[in-house]
Amino acid sequence: MSGAGLDSATLFALTGAILIGIGVYGFIVHAHLLRRILAFNVIGSGIFLMFGALGFRGAGNGTDPVPQALIITGIVVALSLTALAVALLVKLAEEEGGATLPEEQPGRGEAE
């Protein structure tokens, strides 16, 4: 995998970096918590894509298996955190009728 030359691995690694940027943008900008959870998942998959791309050793001999194993572990951990965040969000909506943390967006999420 040549560092500077434009080949698949570098392409995917840079895509991962831009995905992280997009995810960070979403995580900061949105007040609705479900969108922030979605942005969190985009950042996570961006980090993992970069991790795998940096471990890619040319066509034919595949990606370094250790990052692959760590990424599978990371995906399951990200799912667990997302599931808890979603459960907390639904409970917050049931208790206080809002889907945001008030400091950012005082308005209640009105019906769609």
């Binding site: 918590l33 969190f40 955190l81 965040a85 907390l88 969000l89 409970k91 917050l92 206080e96 943390l101």
Partner: peptide, 12 residues
């Protein structure tokens, strides 16, 4: 719930 959610966002 609100404090837990705020904590989780920082932790994420």
């Amino acid at each position: 719930t609100r404090a837990a959610l705020r904590y989780l966002l920082f932790a994420l």
